[in-house]
């Protein structure tokens, strides 16, 4: 199966522009980038994709063994870049995808020219002096709530995934469509996201790196962003006024400006 179809890869912008690969985090899909992408299309080759198991990727390609670690996702990122023949790639990773960028860059020296980490968190669970933003119990409760499905993370979306041509009224009602995910895949992706520990990989990053830190980000609090900045050699730390975890949606102009300033 082609990598392009598997990850629903979309390429836009200019062919001879510097390649920018945008990777969505845990939650929705490549639509998350729609407010920032137009700003880069005039002078970049923009690549969007869905992680396998998310959005409209090929669910049949989902392998629970491969995707039981971020490495499986990092391999896909490398495959996409190779398939498109990219080099000197600017990898923009949101949340957990920032760590996939770290792993992908470590295994293919030279392929990536810059990393932009939007709200990165190398380890969500607090550990001794390290603050990840969540206690062990928090994460356990989070995964439990996901397991029991009652937050509607995925259960309410299941009918959409299955398709329900006989009950169009149901499909019409269930409009949370950008974040649709198979419940089992969503559960495993959450486990991999919230139970990974990539702190040891940070000092090995050898490409120019930007850490974009939001204000009041419950998922990647400021101390975590500062930690990442301190661990990645020569990284740039930019504090955004934007609140929440998705500045590319809530404050696209500020986000674009910070990335452009870093790349120029």
């Amino acid at each position: 199966m082609s990598v392009i179809a598997r990850n629903r890869v979309r390429v836009s912008g200019v062919d001879d522009g510097r390649p920018m690969v945008f990777a969505h985090g845990f939650g929705c899909d490549q639509e998350m980038w729609r407010l920032v992408v137009p700003a880069f299309e005039p002078d970049h080759r923009v690549v969007l994709f869905d992680h396998v198991g998310s959005g409209r990727s090929d669910l049949s390609a989902y392998d629970p063994v491969k995707y039981n670690a971020l490495d499986g996702y990092a391999d896909d990122v490398v495959e996409i870049c190779r398939e498109l023949g990219l080099d000197d790639v600017v990898f923009v990773g949101h949340s957990v995808s920032a760590m996939m960028g770290v792993l992908a860059a470590a295994r293919t020296p030279g392929l990536f020219g810059a990393l932009v980490m939007v709200g990165p968190n190398p380890r969500y669970v607090d550990d001794g002096d390290y603050t990840g933003g969540f206690s062990r119990e928090d994460i356990a409760a989070l995964l439990e709530s996901l397991d029991s499905n009652h937050l509607g993370w995925s259960a309410a979306m299941a009918p959409v995934i299955m398709g329900n041509p006989d009950r169009p009224e149901l499909t019409a009602e269930l409009t949370n469509s950008f974040c649709r995910t198979d419940p089992d895949i969503a559960r495993q992706f959450a486990r991999v996201t919230f139970l990974s520990d990539n702190r040891a990989d940070l000092p090995g990053v050898r490409v120019p790196t930007l850490v974009l830190q939001c204000s009041d980000d419950a998922i990647a609090p400021e101390p975590v962003g500062r930690y990442v900045h301190a661990q990645v050699p020569g990284s740039v730390f930019t504090q955004l006024a934007a609140t929440g975890h998705c500045p590319h949606l809530s404050a696209p102009e500020e986000t674009v400006a910070a990335i452009r300033a870093f790349l120029e």
């Binding site: 845990f26 439990e144 993370w153 409009t175 974040c179 929440g244 949606l249």
Partner: peptide, 22 residues
């Protein structure tokens, strides 16, 4: 805590992208 994470990763993005959630 589960709700907070859901809000940040799903609810808020959905409101921005499609203007509503149900």
């Amino acid at each position: 805590v589960g709700g907070r994470v859901f809000y940040e990763t799903h609810l808020a993005p959905l409101l921005r992208m499609q203007g509503m959630v149900r």
